[in-house]
């Protein structure tokens, strides 16, 4: 097991994006916050299984009241990535993240989601006022010396230009802009925004016979822990049929890969490693 995903705030988020594949939002607690103790227990279990990286997701991880304690526990064990909308990153939090980025035993990646290089383009998906708040979060992270990444969803047939985002990031004081493109998963709210998956959009046996099958799919090298149990990946946490167990020890067998989202993961070689 290479990658431990922790759904640190479950499905609780401060915003409700139209493309969210697990339909997170301010009142959505289908998956609840993980306690610090539950996070540490999962980390120790994962490290004993050879885990080499830990990712925090949600919901919005910075809603967690003990997020810096949980982060320190993780960084003592492995490199950590945090997926965030950046809106809650005030000066103090940015400073704390900057210190950890420089001084922690291992790498800290802060990946900020931004789905447009303008307020108009971003906020049609992520909600009114989000662009402004995220922009300020990015500015503070850059000032604190965090080498952040901006994650951009490919929402339509015409992906936005990389240079638009690079220009925006330079304006915000980011010296070496890093961007990453993320595919949409046609589930949750995204199913209503554009369309849902068709039942035939699944992986074929020939795909899975390939030599690199295991490392191409997220479930080939990782597991996701939420308050409700262990799942193959952060994408399928709302699909009860794909729950693998209540603890990592019960969830290490091969995961089923017959969901249409598995085909997206495969086609996009979806990996949250940089």
């Amino acid at each position: 097991m290479d990658t431990l995903w922790l759904q640190v705030t479950g499905t609780l988020c401060n915003i409700a994006c139209k493309h969210c594949f697990i339909s997170c939002g301010p009142k959505v607690d289908r998956h609840k916050m993980l306690t610090r103790e539950a996070c540490v227990a999962a980390m120790d279990d994962a490290v004993a299984r050879g885990c080499r990286e830990i990712w925090f997701t949600g919901g919005e991880p910075f809603l967690h009241p003990e997020i810096l304690d949980v982060l320190d526990a993780a960084l003592a064990r492995a490199p950590v990535g945090i997926l965030t909308n950046g809106m809650l990153i005030d000066e103090d939090l940015a400073t704390a993240l900057g210190e950890r980025f420089r001084d922690a035993p291992y790498n800290l990646e802060v990946r900020v989601s931004l789905d447009g290089a303008t307020a108009e383009a971003n906020d049609r998906i992520r909600g009114k006022g989000v662009f402004e708040a995220t922009r300020e979060g990015i500015r503070r992270l850059a000032a604190a010396g965090v080498e952040l990444i901006v994650a951009i969803s490919v929402l339509d047939d015409n992906a936005p230009e990389r240079e638009e985002f690079v220009g925006l990031l330079r304006e915000l004081g980011v010296p070496r802009p890093r961007v990453k493109w993320i595919p949409v998963f046609r589930m949750g709210r995204e199913a209503g925004r554009q369309r849902a998956y068709e039942p035939w959009e699944v992986l074929a046996a020939e795909d899975l016979a390939a030599e690199d099958a295991a490392v191409r799919l997220m479930c080939g090298t990782g597991r996701t822990v939420t308050s409700e149990g262990v799942f193959p990946c952060p994408i399928l946490i709302n699909e009860p049929a794909y729950k693998l167990g209540s603890a990592l020890g019960e969830a290490m067998g091969a995961a089923p890969v017959d969901h249409p989202a598995c085909a997206t993961c495969w086609q996009e070689s979806f990996s949250c490693s940089t």
Binding site: A78, P79, N107
Partner: peptide
């Protein structure tokens, strides 16, 4: 275990090194 796996200093933790050396 993999010819094109990247082992960077900041992303190769002690626990993983122990795991690889044991394997």
């Amino acid at each position: 275990r993999r010819v094109n796996e990247f082992l960077w200093e900041s992303t190769t933790p002690a626990g993983f090194i122990d795991h690889l050396c044991r394997e």
